[in-house]
Each structure stands twice: as structure tokens, then as C-alpha cells.
Design a protein around this nucleic acid. Structure first.
Length: 455
RNA sequence: GUAGGUAUAGCUCAGUUGGUUAGAGCAUCGGUUUGUGGUACCGAGGGUCGUCGGUUCGAGCCCGAUUACUUACCCCA
């Protein structure tokens, strides 16, 4: 067979042992916080039926879904007219499955499919990879992990307040000290579009004002003009998007501006309720900021929306979420409300790496390496090896036959702190040589004493 | 979908206005040291210079195409 240059597909990555230790540290931290707030873990399959996914993320989203080719000789069943039609239609015939694009839609499917077995409100979390056929760039991959927590069947705004507490606790535990949880409400955005008199352009409006801190006011104005807004519309919009002040202050001003919009006022009231819940709790490190320009792309959000940004480094958002009133409606279950949040674990990894926030000890896995000089030493070492493991000490035995130099190199590269050297002297005397790899000190000890020292 | 950048050893990269046998560091293996690592010294293996074509007496270098990777935009975690 011809040798193939080893490589992985675009936007996808291998993870080394050292990286996995750090990744698991992030996942474990987030999961433990989810559990603390009463969320239970589920998993869903890597692939969903295309029909489950398609149409849930907008046209742009559909384009970014990885489709999986049918098995078997699908072309033999092909009809001639398929080839003449659009790409999308042909795809429907030769691909019935697709890789999951996020965790929320599969979760909605799960809830509807298992509704009879679920006690509501149902609080679940899920940590799995998702795939997007996007152009990769910094902080964007084609395969990446999401850590989602969602609750369905409860319209209480306490859930939203708790999401903020979850963000605060998890990110603080990971060592971040300066991050902002931005909060907005889709109803407020709808109210603004209503007041301007262009409710049908709400999506274009939110996409444009979302870019305020990126392209500035002039950029936003230009984009709005190309999307069909007039000068007068923008004049009315400008005071809203430039709103300054403390959260309560912003909401008071908004009440005046949106006084004619019932929807808008409802959105404001919701935010006020969430903020009042938070007054009974103490946040560890997070700053909560009402940000009217926060939009979020997904079109199924209907109430509160969140986005988390770190202020210590340049990085896109590291988390987001919101409330969606009718996600399960797409699968035939009406009237079930839900809300959820997501952590972008891969981006959090990049941030912790950049800020050097990973704990130092996390790159040790094996605690003791036994280095035998010969086969006799190896045999002699076996009972000690088991004793160490029985005592819950991570231990390994370097197979006999290699030079000691090579064995110590191995211990070095794996960051193993203790080495036990066993040669003919040790076998004869029963006094084994224990070497501390950090200090270089050696001492002769019995097997029992070694256990006590390395413990 | 749009616009740039890059492609030379396992990895990170040098390589002069186009000139003879393409280099370094790291990594690997061996040795100095037959029972002791991280430092030092000596040595070895490893490259059809992404691919195809063109210009030229001569191309790693110039030109064209192509593929892959990458950055930014759109969109998004």
C-alpha cells in the first residue's frame, strides 16, 4: 500500500496526553458545577437524521451542516431528474444522516421522543463534540466541544438567574478573574424594531447592532442603510444602541423609549426580574451587564439571551445561551418552554493557556517508575508494582532490557517524580534504591518504606 | 461564498541579485560513561525543496496553474 502523508482533516485536531489532562480539567470543572445546580448528564448520537437538523439554524446554518453519505450503492437508485436539480435536492436523496451541529436541537428531539419518561422541569447537561463545515480560523474549528446545560418545562426566570450563577462559579473556578456576562432580551430587540416601524427587519437590525464594538457606530449605520433602514429609522435607533449607565439606569431609560411596545416592556420586566433574583446571591468574579446590542445569531431565542466574554484577552465569546419558548414545537410538542447555556470549551482552553491559568501539577500522571537492570530485577519488582497500585499510587514498570539512562529519560519526559532502581544489589539485600527525580537524591529503602515515602 | 499569506528533514525554520554536493536548532538513535536522567562534547540516520507545467546554459529561488494548510470577511462557540 502506498504510504499516505499523515494528516487530519481541516479544522480538526489531535489531542496529546498533556492536552487531554488540561481539557479534562476544564470539562470536569464545568460538569461538577452543572451537577451542583441539579443538572443531569445525557448523551445523544454523533449523527442525527438530516430532517431533525435541517431548517433549524437558518440557511447559513444548513450550509454548515456536515452531511453523511448513505451507505450502499446509492447512485444505482438515483433518478435522472435529481442530477438536473439543485445541489440541495440531490443531497436529500443521497444523504439521510448528518453530524450534529449543536447540542440544543438534538436535546429538543430527545425531549419530545422521550417525553413520557421525563419528569418536568427537566434539567440536563451534555458535553459532546459538534461539527460545523465552516472555514476554520483562530478560535474556530470544524470539530469542537460544547458544554450545554438546558432546562425545559419551567418558565421561571429563576432558571436564567441560575445560569448566571453557573457561569460565575465555573469560570471563577477555572481561574478567570475578569469576565462579563452580557444579558439582553429578544423581546426588547423586537420592541425596538417595532418602535422604529420595521419589525420585519429585526434580524438584519440585530445582526448589525451586534457588531457595534467591532466596527463602530459608523460601520453599523452603513450596514443598516444597506439593509433598507432610512436615516430617520437610524436616528431613532441611535440613542438605544448607545445607551450608557448602570443596568437599572439603562432599563429605566428603555422603559420610556419602548413605552409604546407591549413586547418591549415585557422584555424589560423579565430582565428586571432576573436581576432582582441575583440580588439575593453573591457573584464570585463575574460582572453582569445589560447590553442592548447583544444579539446572538440563532433565531430560536425568544426571551433572555446571554453571552460571556473574557476581558483579559482577545477572544470571541466563550459561552452563550438564552430562552427559547417553542423549540420542541418543531418536533410536534407545543407549549414547552426551555432555556439553556453553553460553554465553548475549546476557546476556554485557549484563554487559560494564554493566561497560564492551568494548574501546574496537572501534567503528572505516573507517580513511580520502577527501573530494573535485568530480568531478575524485573521479576523482583512485580510484587512491589502491585503493592503500589493497591495503595492507589499510579505506578509503572519499565520492561527490562533497556539501559538505565534510557529509563531515566523516559521518567523525565513523563514528568515522573519518583524512580525505584532495582539491580542485583537490591535483589540481594532487599533494600531498593529510591530516587527523587526533582532533587536527584537517592536512598536505600525497603519496599514498605518506599510506599510510605511516595504516598 | 469573498480576499490575502504560506508550502524546504519527524517538528520549528534559514537558504543572498537564479550558479556546482540544500543548511541550522530541536527531536530520534549511537558513543564519551558495561549501575544513574535533566547540563556538556563527538557521531549517525533522515529531504524526488507540496504537485504539474513554463522561462533559462542552469530553478529551492522567477512565471502560470493546481492542491493543502492558514489568516481576515460573511456567519458563528
Amino acid at each position: 500500500m502506498a504510504s499516505v502523508k499523515p494528516s487530519v482533516p481541516k479544522g480538526m485536531r489531535d489531542f496529546s496526553p498533556a492536552e487531554m489532562v488540561k481539557r479534562n480539567y476544564i470539562f470536569d470543572t464545568i460538569k461538577s458545577v452543572f451537577r451542583k445546580f441539579g443538572y443531569q448528564q445525557i448523551e445523544t448520537p454523533t449523527m442525527e437524521n438530516s430532517a431533525t437538523l435541517m431548517g433549524k439554524y437558518g440557511d447559513e446554518g444548513d450550509r454548515l451542516i456536515f452531511k453523511v453519505l448513505n451507505s450502499g450503492d446509492y447512485l444505482s437508485k438515483a433518478q435522472p431528474e435529481w442530477l438536473g436539480s439543485t445541489n440541495a435536492k440531490l443531497t436529500n436523496h443521497i444523504s439521510e444522516k448528518a453530524l450534529r451541529y449543536d447540542l440544543t436541537v438534538p436535546f429538543a428531539r430527545y425531549v419530545v421522543q422521550h417525553q413520557n419518561d421525563i419528569t418536568f422541569p427537566f434539567k440536563r447537561f451534555q458535553v459532546q463534540p459538534v461539527w460545523r463545515a465552516d472555514r476554520p480560523q483562530k478560535g474556530r474549528y470544524r470539530e469542537f466541544y460544547q458544554c450545554d446545560a438546558d432546562v425545559v418545562g419551567s418558565n421561571s426566570l429563576l432558571n436564567e438567574a441560575e445560569f448566571i450563577l453557573i457561569y460565575d462559579e465555573a469560570l471563577s473556578k477555572l481561574g478567570l478573574t475578569n469576565f462579563t456576562i452580557k444579558i439582553n432580551n429578544r423581546k426588547i430587540l423586537a420592541g425596538i424594531a417595532e418602535i422604529i416601524g420595521k419589525p420585519e427587519l429585526i434580524v438584519d437590525m440585530t445582526v448589525a447592532i451586534d457588531k457595534l464594538d467591532k466596527i463602530g457606530l459608523d460601520g453599523v449605520v452603513n450596514e443598516l442603510l444597506t439593509k433598507g433602514f432610512t436615516r430617520e429609522d437610524i436616528d431613532r435607533l441611535e440613542p438605544v444602541i448607545l445607551l450608557q449607565g448602570a443596568n437599572a439606569e439603562k432599563l429605566e431609560k428603555l422603559k420610556t423609549i419602548l413605552s409604546a411596545s407591549e413586547t418591549g416592556l415585557k422584555g424589560i420586566a423579565e430582565l428586571e426580574t432576573i436581576l432582582s433574583y441575583l440580588q439575593s446571591f453573591t457573584l464570585i468574579k463575574a460582572t453582569v451587564e445589560v447590553d442592548i446590542t447583544l444579539a446572538r445569531g440563532l433565531n430560536y431565542y425568544t426571551g433572555a439571551i446571554f453571552e460571556v466574554k473574557t476581558n483579559e484577552t482577545v477572544m470571541g465569546s466563550i459561552g452563550g445561551g438564552g430562552r427559547y419558548d417553542d423549540l420542541t414545537g418543531m418536533f410536534g410538542l407545543k407549549g414547552l418552554t426551555g432555556a439553556g447555556i453553553s460553554f465553548g470549551a475549546d476557546r476556554i482552553y485557549d484563554v487559560l493557556e494564554e493566561l497560564k491559568l492551568f494548574p501546574e501539577a496537572s501534567n503528572q500522571t505516573t507517580r513511580v517508575l520502577i527501573c530494573p537492570f535485568d530480568a531478575a530485577g524485573e521479576t523482583y519488582a512485580l510484587p512491589l508494582l502491585q503493592q503500589l497500585r493497591t495503595a492507589s499510587i499510579n505506578a509503572e514498570l519499565y520492561p527490562a532490557g533497556a539501559k538505565i539512562k534510557k529509563q531515566l529519560d523516559y521518567a523525565n519526559n513523563k514528568n515522573i517524580p519518583y524512580v525505584v532502581v532495582i539491580g542485583s544489589d537490591e535483589v540481594q539485600s532487599g533494600q531498593l534504591t529510591l530516587k527523587n527525580m526533582q532533587t536527584g537524591e537517592q536512598q536505600k529503602l525497603s519496599a514498605d518504606n518506599i510506599l510510605a515515602v511516595v504516598k
